[in-house]
Design a protein around this nucleic acid. Structure first.
Lengths: 122, 122
DNA sequence: TCGATAGTTGAGCAATAATTCAACTATACG
DNA sequence: CGTATAGTTGAATTATTGCTCAACTATCGA
């Protein structure tokens, strides 16, 4: 009874679990890892980031490229900025965005190679 | 007037936009890329996947490791399975899960190195 | 055969998140 | 100055999504 008690009693392989637990990074680290992937895990943002991996672009040009509004792009850029994924410079009233970190480009590349290795959808 | 017309008229740098557009993968590809990152972009799933990158584990052990229910884990595993991120084998009534693809391990590693290069939060 | 346990599943709920809309700031240019 | 445009922002709306709960299947062992 009370089966949903977090499965504490019924450990199948305690040794393995303990070993994995000891080799697991801090909660905080894995949380930030998830956060990093989450920010890449949206079609709009991934398109923005892929574009910025090719070229520094202003908000209006990004919006035009994606076929969406400046507002939507600006909201996403704010998120990306707050997580230090993109940086910007102002030139008059125009704001140019670019990737803040080479790791993001690497992740995009690694992700794309994962995609292409998967072949066509099942 | 009608400023929100997708910003079509007001292109700041048409040449750059055209160049980027030509160098952009198909919509479908970027969508699948976002999907790949999205699946890694959740604390529960990232913990599951990190654990599986170390050791083949059954559902109950994963639940115990994460301190959550078998149901929650099973739901997430179903998603991971449907995207071919994990695979499984049955041994009696026990189901052992493991990573399906080395790319996922690479992404986790690249992501972790991105995290650690960021230093402590601003 | 019967009870217990591993795992799956669908429905519903609560939280989160992406977009739209409208209002706003700031800069450029006539 | 005044108007137009680039960009930002907050609120509201709508769509996702992760988890819980309860019911279910399947396998093991007594």
């Amino acid at each position: 009874m009370n089966e949903r008690a977090v499965c504490t009693i019924s450990l199948i392989n305690e040794a393995k679990v303990t070993a994995v637990k000891n080799a697991t990074p801090e909660e905080e680290t894995l949380f930030r890892l998830a956060e990093t992937f989450r920010v890449l895990g949206d079609p709009t943002r991934v398109r923005i980031l892929h574009a910025l991996s090719l070229e520094e672009l202003c908000v209006c040009d990004i919006a035009s490229l994606l076929g969406t509004t400046k507002s939507a792009v600006s909201h996403q850029l704010r998120l990306l900025r707050s997580l230090r994924v993109v940086k910007y410079r102002k030139d008059g009233r125009i704001v140019y965005y670019s990737l803040d970190d080479s790791h993001v480009g690497n992740l995009l590349r690694e992700g794309l190679s994962h995609i292409s290795s998967q072949g066509v959808s099942p």
